[in-house]
């Protein structure tokens, strides 16, 4: 019991000091085109608002999210968001709703790029994975629950 509470305490203070040192040590010039506010957001809505200016996404059958129903290892979960059937796709955002910072990645498309992304993401626990597509100034989404048997965020 003592050992457990000791670990908890060290983890909590450790995380706080990381946040401080990261803020102080990271030169802002390096991350000029990185949306820190969106990536640091703790809630899905906050992240989407900071990134896309809105969090009001409508469910759409044209957004196809492919993810495993059960991920044995949350550290490498294959996720595909396919919006090739939509016109005027501006960006695709992947969100892991229950991770400490939910925003996973944002892909902005222009010119000949198609609205399609496939990648591997970390999931800390069983949760909803969401694919948000911005097309013609509006947001569309698809989501799916992924059960995680081994989390992928801790050390």
């Amino acid at each position: 019991m003592k050992r457990r509470s000791f670990l908890k305490a060290t983890l909590a203070t450790g995380a706080a000091s990381v946040a401080v040192s990261a803020g102080l040590l990271t030169p802002s010039t390096v991350l000029a085109s990185w949306n820190k506010k969106a990536f640091d957001a703790k809630k899905v809505d906050e992240a989407l608002n900071a990134l896309l200016g809105s969090s009001d996404a409508a469910d759409s059958a044209d957004v196809k999210l492919t993810a495993p129903a059960i991920a044995e290892n949350g550290a490498v979960t294959p996720v595909t968001v396919d919006a090739s059937g939509m016109k005027g796709v501006e960006s695709i955002v992947i969100v892991a709703s229950n991770n400490p910072t939910p925003l996973v990645c944002e892909y902005k498309f222009s010119g000949a790029a198609q609205g399609f992304v496939s990648t591997r993401i970390r999931l800390g626990s069983t949760q909803q994975v969401m694919g948000v597509v911005k097309a013609g100034g509006k947001l569309y989404k698809a989501q799916q629950e992924v059960r995680v048997t081994i989390g992928g965020c801790g050390g």
Partner: peptide
């Protein structure tokens, strides 16, 4: 054609297909 931003929620040794 593509400009992406990533967070630590992307797995180590990342794989990307576009």
């Amino acid at each position: 054609v593509i400009d992406a931003q990533w967070s630590a929620n992307v797995s180590a040794n990342p794989y990307m297909h576009v």
